[in-house]
Amino acid sequence: MRLEPRPSSAGAAKILWPAGAILATVVLSSVLVMIAGASPFTVFWLVAKGAAGSQFALLETLTRATPLIFTGLAVAVAFRAKLWNIGAEAQLYLGAVMTVVIGTGAVTLPSAGLIPLIMVAAMLTGALTLLGPAILKTKFGVDEVVTTLLLNFIVLLFVSMLLEGPLKDPMGMGWPQSKRVVADAQLPRLIKGKRLHFGFILAIASAIVVWVIMKKTTLGYEMRAVGHNAEAARFAGIPVNRVIAKTALLSGGLAALAGFSEVTGLKGNLTLDLSPGYGYTGIVVAMLAMLNPLGVIAAAIFVAGIFVGADAMSRSANVPSYIAEVMVATSLLTMVAAIMLMRYRVRWR
C-alpha cells in the first residue's frame, strides 16, 4: 500500500475519518466494558451523565479541563515547532513549587500584586525548565524527547525532597505537603461555593493569546516554519536555534501555569499528587486539537469529561475508571491516524 495526497477539496474525508476515529474508540472501549461484564450503553450513559448531566458534573469537568488546557497549549506550541516537549509534567511541578515558595507568606502584597507576581515567577520557572533541554538540543544535539522524559522523574523526586524538607508544612501531621498559600495568593472561585475557579478564565485567555501569537506574529510564523522544515527555515534566514529557545520558553511557561492554577485556584497547597499525569495527557489534548490553540479548549473539555465521567461511572457500575485512560489513549492513536487519512488516500497495489 502507498499514500497519495488528496486534492484539498475532498470534503467527505474531513468528516468521515475523524468520525471513524471516534467510532473506533467507542467500539474498543465497548469491548472492554463487556469484558468487565457491564453493558456499554449503560456505561457510556453513566459517563456522559457524570461528565455533563448536571450543573455539578459540568462544573467539575471544566475544573478538570483547566490544567489540561494549559498543558495542551504547552504541547501544541512546542510540537508546532517540532520541539518534542514530553516534559510538561516537570514544568507543571516546578511552576507549582515556585508558586508555594512565593505564595505561602514569603511575600506580602495585596492580591492584585501578589497573584500576577506569582504567575510570572511560576511561568519563568517552567520556561527555564524547558530551556535546558532546548539548549542541549540546539547546542549539543541531544534529543529533547529523552531529556524531557528523564527530567520528569528528576523533578518529581526533587519535589518529593522539598516536601519532606524545606517546603514541608510543619502543621501537616507529617504528610509530605507544603503549607497552604496565603489568602491573597488564592484565585477567586467563579461561582460561590463551587470548585470552578478563575484559572479556567486564565486558561481560555491563554489559548486566545497563544492563537494570536501563532497566527498573527512573526514568532508564530517562524515557529511554524521551523516545524515544517528546519533546514529550509535556516536557509530562509530564520534564526532556528533562537526560535526553538523562544518556543521552549513559551511552552514551559504555559505548562507551569497549570501548576500555578491548580495550587492557587483549587488545591491551595503542593502535594506529590498535584498532577495525575496532566503533562502527558496534554499531549493527547494537543493532538486531538490538531495543535490548534483554540481547539485545545474543546479537546481539553472533552478529555476532562471522559475522566470526570468515568470516575462517576465507576462508582455505580462495576467497571474500573482506568477505562478513561484507555479511551483517551485510543482516541489519540485513532485521531492521528484519521488526520493522516484525511490528507492522504491509501492506494493498494
Binding site: 499514500l3 472492554l32 510540537f79 518534542w84 514530553i86 524527547v145 502527558y280 499531549i283 493527547v284 493532538m287 482506568y322 485512560e325 484507555v326 483517551v328 489513549a329 485510543t330 489519540l332 492513536l333 492521528v336 491516524a337 493522516m340 487519512l341
Partner: peptide
C-alpha cells in the same frame, strides 16, 4: 501509515499501560 513516531509511541505507552 507513516504517522509521527513520537506521538504514536507516546500513544502506545499510554494505551499499553492503561490497558
Amino acid at each position: 501509515l507513516g504517522l509521527s513516531q513520537h506521538v504514536t509511541g507516546i500513544g502506545i505507552t499510554l494505551l499499553a499501560a492503561s490497558l
